[in-house]
Amino acid sequence: MRDIIELASIGLVSGLVIGLAALAVTLVFGIARFANAATGDTMTLGAYAALIGTAWTGSFLAGGALGIAAGAATGLLAYHFVFKKLEQRSSVASLLASIGVGFVIRAVLGLVFGHGQQVFQLPMVRPFRIYDIRVQPNDLKIAAAAIVTLVVVFLILHATPIGRRMRAVADDPMLAKVSGIAPKRVMIALWALAGGVSAVAGVLLGMKTVVSPEMGWEMLLPAFAAAVLGGIGHPVGAVVAGILLGVAQEVVSPLVGFTYKIALTYAVLLGVLLFRPRGLFGRNEGVR
């Protein structure tokens, strides 16, 4: 029993990271109406930027801030040079282009930093026990950072005028347009936000494991699975589904073995698409 709870708590942390990545995917899907395959590589870029920032400043927080800024900038650049030009085309064009954008980011990172693994120099701290459950202090920090990020994103979406406009565009783009909501400003806010959230996910993933050029790309499938499971275009759903997936992956690993826990994600993705395409939170959005 204790093992399962320990695994679940580990899963909760990786689930929060998946949830953040899924949130970035679902935000873009809800508003820009395509599945952004560059999300994973934006995460990776954020993690490398945070590594550099930490090395420069000696402060992990400052490094993280640079990572977020780099993620937001990447989102904006991708929008400005690629996705804006494809807005009037089918969403397949944007999806394919995003695979290309992701590939370019990954290739450049590989070229600049090499394909070796790097780690954040975090202080080594002993795990402590809560009710006999072993807890890693770094996991607590990761969870706290993820939760703060989620709170900020949901405050932006629900308590600010630009967030309201973003949700309005997600709801009915035509009505938003005739209501005088400038689509370009909403898009800029969206890409900055989605890029920043991706970067946070990347930094946290890097803290938890290692930083390598492929780390984000490998997270893309779990992120897509969580976004679909949560009901595509539904931010709360994405986060909840991400946590569920993360916990489920860890809890089943003693049964199926470490190598195959990732297969669970495929199974869930397939199951949801076949049996409940609307996802858990069941609203059918952005489907045309």
Binding site: R167, A168, D171, S179, G180, R185, I188, A189
Partner: peptide, 23 residues
């Protein structure tokens, strides 16, 4: 109407001069 936005938010999104501020 914006189906997922509240009635109040629906009215708020109709107010003019809302292209002014960004994120």
């Amino acid at each position: 109407e914006f189906t997922h936005l509240t009635v109040r938010e629906n009215l708020l999104t109709a107010a003019p001069n809302q292209s002014g501020e960004g994120l």
